[in-house]
Amino acid sequence: MKKRVGIPRALLYYTYYPLWREFFTSLGAEVVVSSPTTKGILNQGVKKAVDEACLPVKLYYGHVMDLIGKVDYLFLPRMVSVEAKTYICPKFLGLPDMIRHNVDNLPTLIDVNINRHKNDNQLYGAVYQVGKMFSANPYNIYAAFNRAIKVQNRYETLLQQGILPFEALSVLERGDGGDKETATPQQGKDLTIALVGHPYNIYDNYISMNLIEKLKTMGAMVMTPEAVAPEVVEGEANKLPKKMFWNMGKKMVGSAFHFLNRPDVDGIIHLAAFGCGPDSFTGELVEREVRRKKTVPFLNLTIDEHTGEAGIVTRLEAFVDMIRWKAVSQ
């Protein structure tokens, strides 16, 4: 029987799923992803986690619990750092500990440290450590990782073309080139809105309350940080007085600054999670910059487990209307 590896559909799932899946399946494992977020999944997470935790971490607990009994392993790497001199967030550093000491009946945890803070050499060590659990053959592990990297690169290329993660995932799933058919995802819209936030907030349809779809229905084209080239992010983020040590934060600030300078962006929405530490700072830096420039309308939305859909819709509609009026009056 195949070994089943569970991956929670939360946090970095949206960023690295293709890599993880390819790696495990190449080694003969079966990958099981938790169900898409529902009220039930969120609620069980909210109950387990401490009140003070941010929404995404609470949700992560819920997805972990969803996998219990369905898998032999739970892939829960300690994501310390994915890029030199940066971290993700302190909570990612402690995530395996938080889960292990709070959730009962866990399957075997795969909780290697992924740490590229100093250099890249350690990464393969971690990969090998995980691979060994599924294959005794070092070459197979190496080959599986190489395949995984290739798939991940394709995924990122698709994202760079403006294709949203769930579409990109299904392109990969279908296994076709995909690039052409899907490269013209959004047309016939009169507005462009940049949506800035953590991938696990903006792409989780339950958490974001279908924000992207809603904007599209209102006639807006949506751009997200995933479509901004890394060099551009880097260049814009370098305008900060000091290097930002959260890589996701850097991406958000860098892409927000970039959107701010693009003539085709009509408005920027910052989606923050309740209780998120880095968001409170990156959001502030972005908001102040936007308000000083006064060129692009800006909306800051904070979501938590109690946020009502109606309130969000009202604010979105008002925002979009405002942008349209502005266009007319100019």
Binding site: A49, V50, E52, A53, C54, V57, C89, P90, K91, L93, G94, D97, M98, H101, N102, G275, C276, G277, S280
Partner: peptide, 12 residues
Amino acid sequence: FTCMPEIVAQSV
């Protein structure tokens, strides 16, 4: 409130 390292600590 919202202190990240202490939330990890508080959780365990």
